[in-house]
Design a protein around this nucleic acid. Structure first.
Lengths: 198, 198
DNA sequence: TAATTAATAGAACGTACGTTTAATTATGGC
DNA sequence: GCCATAATTAAACGTACGTTCTATTAATTA
């Protein structure tokens, strides 16, 4: 057989990306074979190469989409004006909502950096750095205004990011807590962390 | 050739464990082959099987040692008496010191859980759960005493653990900050996080 | 309806993997 | 100095991997 009835490049590519995220989030990039991925999509392994020239290209595409989506999400959610505390709240909420809604993508982006080539790793890290810089700027402006009390801006930014990204390790939507409750509690903890009045 | 001059089972096993941690922390469990590991140790791949029956056994041994070491370290560092704030400080400091001193082991234990069989995964998670329970108890006692102000004990415990484990993602000893300074700043942030007076 | 292009299948290639087996050499106790 | 045993090598086994090649069929265009 060859081309199958109803086959459509766009749909196949989307199915590949979704299946890749799901499988790689669960088993890890190295542990997922192209044949296994193809089987999940319902296609032969060779068909994957029409959409992604190599396995690493596929990973890179997924990671880039994740980081660009995260940055775009923050740009859309960032309040046009407001004090540092309001900005920080918005940042925390956007971060948590984005990651909870993209569990698989987040896992892959956090765990599989080492499977990228040096130059692609550099590009992803640059995107990540740009995103983290947004948080550092918020912290610095709050500290300058006297709203926040911060020892070390870079260290505090990393601590906050680790904390709020860690949500996806234990959070399961539809269980004890809702996203709103979780985001709210993290929001409170973050403000306390930076020494701002609750 | 066969047995080599000066060969010693204990030393070889220690060398295998150290090399495995180093390589797996950098490249990931799946990406490290037994031949590559053997090459790093200076031995043939078959020699590894004298010490570890399978590759997964090796991983499991490393992870179990890490978790048991962490729990033992906390048992040794835990103050015999003291209020919740003092206990929390001791917990944070021990956690950070332990993990910073064992970067490779920490990376492997945090990243490679999915390469364990179900029953071994369960065992490691049980150890992890026991360790996290210590923190939850500290938080609860502090909340009961009115020292801490905590919304959700389980959620707060996870947030703190994510935050203080995340240190090893960015911290490099011998650079801008010392372990003492880092532990001190995290200690301050943690106390603020739980609503305790600094 | 004929020609072109898009989307796939099926088979194969070379390589690397985890692991096993058998042979071989060094070490330590008598 | 002999002997049991500890430590290791060298070679091989079967399997699975990422990827490529070619043929074939479905959809689209003219």
């Amino acid at each position: 057989m060859a081309r199958t009835a109803g086959s459509d490049g766009e749909k196949t590519e989307a199915a590949i990306r979704a299946a890749a995220l799901r499988l790689m989030a669960r088993h890890g990039f190295e542990a997922v074979s192209m044949r296994q991925l193809a089987g999940e999509v319902g296609v032969q392994a060779a068909a994957l190469y029409r959409y992604f020239p190599t396995k690493e290209d596929l990973l890179y595409t997924l990671m880039r989409a994740h980081m660009e989506g995260l940055i775009a999400s923050w740009e859309a959610a960032r309040p046009a004006s407001g004090n540092a505390a309001a900005l920080l709240s918005a940042f925390v909420e956007n971060h948590i909502r984005f990651h909870v809604a993209r569990r698989h993508s987040t896992h892959v982006s956090n765990m599989e950096l080492r499977s990228l080539s040096h130059e692609r790793l550099t590009h992803i890290l640059r995107l990540r750095g740009a995103y983290e810089k947004e948080l550092r700027q918020i912290l610095r402006s709050g500290a300058d205004a006297g709203t926040f009390h911060i020892d070390d801006t870079a260290l505090t930014a990393m601590a906050i990011i680790q904390m709020i990204t860690g949500v996806i390790v234990w959070f399961r939507p539809g269980e004890r807590l809702s996203v709103e409750e979780v985001a709210d509690t993290y929001h409170t903890m973050t403000l306390r962390l930076v020494g701002a009045p609750a």
